[in-house]
Every structure is written in C-alpha cells, then in structure tokens.
Computed example of a mutant assay.
Amino acid sequence: MTTYALVSVGCPHCSGQFLENAKLVRPDGDAWCPHCEKLFTLDSGNLATRRTLAEAKAARRRRKDRLTELRATWSDVPAAPPKPMLMGDVLRALDELLDRLDGLTHKRS
C-alpha cells in the first residue's frame, strides 16, 4: 500500500493528464502541470474538475478506511503513546544497546 492515494488530473492549458496526490487535490486548490509547466486552479465549476475532485475525495476516504482497518489488526500498536523516559532510563537503554552491539562484534571476530 502506498503512503498516499493518486488521482488523474487534466490540465486545462494543454489537456495533458498527470497523477497527483489526492491529499493535494482540493476545491479551489492549485495544481502544477508537469507537461506544460503551468500552475492552474482546480475550478469546481468545471465538470471534469468536479469529477476529479470527487475521485480525490473518494480516494482519501478509501485510504483513511484502509488505514483504520490495518490499525485495528495490528496487535503490537500501543493504545497510548509511551510515557517519557527519564534520563537514567535513556542511559540504561543506551548501555544495553552498546553491550548488545559489542556482543555482535565479538561473535563476528
């Protein structure tokens, strides 16, 4: 699964088609055409643009639903963020890590 959803956008200047992140395709937002290198506004008055905006909204919803579904199935995701560590805890964790790395280095030798 990609980290973002893509939708096809049509350029009103050159009629070129290109893929854009659905997160960026919003009513009255701007898009940059890689073909003619012009910036244009996604005018919701245009029928083709309205279709593109609807596709982008649906793609964002599908992605959000899929991520929610995946998060529900992940058993190792903590319910709450971990508590901040004290400096002593950080130093102890670093010492343990260095000991493990040192042990790996000696095994390879």
Rank of each mutant, 00 (worst) to 15 (best):
A5Q: 01
L6F: 05
A54Q: 12
P34W: 03
R61T: 13
T73I: 09
T105S: 12
R62I: 07
V9N: 00
R61C: 05
T52F: 02
R92I: 06
L94R: 13
R61F: 09
T68M: 10
V25K: 02
D65P: 02
L104A: 10
D99N: 11
T3A: 10
S15M: 10
C36T: 04
V90K: 13
P34R: 03
L98E: 14
A72T: 05
Y4G: 07
Q17W: 07
M1T: 09
H13T: 12
A93W: 01
P84M: 05
G29E: 03
R92H: 10
L104S: 07
G10Y: 04
L86M: 09
Q17E: 12
V9C: 01
D30Y: 09
P82F: 02
R50G: 05
W32I: 11
P81Y: 04
C14I: 06
L86R: 13
E20G: 04
L86C: 04
A5G: 03
P12F: 01
W74N: 12
D65C: 07
M85Q: 12
A79R: 11
L86E: 13
E96G: 10
A22T: 00
L47V: 14
L91M: 12
A79D: 15
A22Y: 00
S15K: 12
A48V: 12
E69K: 08
L53W: 01
L42Q: 01
K64T: 14
M87L: 15
E20M: 13
L53Q: 00
G103H: 05
G10T: 15
D65W: 12
L47F: 09
D99V: 10
